[in-house]
Design a protein around this nucleic acid. Structure first.
Lengths: 214, 214
DNA sequence: GACTGCTGTTACCGCAAGTAACATGCACGT
DNA sequence: ACGTGCATGTTACTTGCGGTAACAGCAGTC
């Protein structure tokens, strides 16, 4: 039958695809985001054109690779966000989950944050207007949804939730990025500080001796 | 004299350098961050090696270019941050200044956020560990300093200020990036929403009907 | 006039993305 | 058994970019 044949081919193709992705994973883990198609092909024991047949172009491969890691990370984050605890604890657990992930695999993290650069041959642009990594966008949207369905924010709450979702994710990302580079404090301290920020301690803090003007 | 000669040469070199930077600026404004050295040289009416003599490599040119814009933007932000108004108003003015800047010149903004990719010739890496754009780092440090010298945060205040500086900058950046792509609301609304977030409205908001667990 | 130091050029290297064009193995329908 | 499709794999190529010799004018200086 056509269907069974198709299924067989499809299954084999999917298996191959997964093998290639795992090889690419290994290379990215080793070389970071500037891993070349040649290197990935070599790691997989094959040559370039096969990669291109499977993924179209470098952006396609990167997107597929990013999807895997993004899905995995989002699963962890959802778990932390859904834990049966009070709001502050859940926020802290979520921050900690994210920071732990980027701490464990900085190369993968670095890769995920780079969209795909720009195609440098004839093809110009590459989605002008999409600046940040898809991972950040997805995390932002996800968090926005959680905020909106769990909190009562009154009229305009949906938009507020989206702004906050992306804003909080950006805060987490930037702080984590800086922390990963300088390691100025422990992860727990960082988590506490960020949660404090979200809890309004900035607005509540007293002015210094000289008064508010200066 | 040696000094006068040197001065003349240096002045002419500086003038050239500025001209080249302005040409590069025009190209980046047009082509975004994937502007090629060839294109920049052509725009300046010269050829590649001259660029390399002036700036070393592409990273050098990009760094010089980024420095100009970063300095300009930071000046605007400092002005907003130093305005004689209460804290909330200053925060909102600063957010608005940043958002206005990225709204006016999205190409330049996009360029500033891309570190320098990775050197692809023999040279590997390119500062492994520095992920995000220098602009973000500088804004974060600057804000941290302002926070620390203006607010009384008790013991550990310096570290707290740095975390907050980078966190707030990241929040601003990510939200701005998302907003620039989707335009879901006016700039004023975005500013208000972000300030609300910093003022602890997330922590203060009431749970939805089903209770805190779900 | 030779020397130095700058600006500018053409022509090249190396490398990575992406693409033909050709070769092979495996299942089918007849 | 035999060609027909089709996916898999290869080598060898093109294009375009970053970066670098090597050489050509053209100031000023001794």
């Amino acid at each position: 039958m056509d269907t069974t044949q198709r299924t067989d081919q499809q299954r084999s193709a999917d298996r191959r695809r997964r093998e290639l992705l795992e090889a690419a994973d290994r290379v990215v883990l080793r070389d970071g985001p500037q891993a070349s198609m040649n290197a990935i092909a070599a790691e997989a024991g094959i040559t370039k054109p096969i990669l291109y047949r499977h993924f179209g172009d470098k952006g396609g491969l990167y997107a597929a690779l990013a999807m895997r890691h993004t899905d995995a990370l989002l699963d962890s984050l959802r778990a932390a966000l859904d834990a049966p605890a009070d709001r502050r604890e859940r926020v802290e657990a979520t921050l900690d989950t994210y920071l732990t992930a980027i701490e464990l695999r900085p190369q993968v993290y670095r890769f995920l944050m780079h969209p795909a650069e720009g195609g440098q041959p004839g093809d110009a642009g590459f989605d002008v207007g999409k600046h940040s990594a898809p991972l950040l966008r997805r995390m932002g949207e996800e968090l926005a949804q959680v905020i909106e369905e769990r909190l009562d924010l009154g009229p305009g709450g949906q938009q507020l939730a989206r702004v906050w979702g992306h804003g909080i994710v950006g805060m987490m990302h930037a702080a984590g990025d800086w922390w990963l580079g300088e390691r100025p404090c422990s992860r727990a301290e960082l988590v506490r500080s960020l949660a404090d920020l979200l809890w309004g301690r900035l607005a509540a803090a007293g002015d210094r001796v000289g008064g508010p003007g200066f």
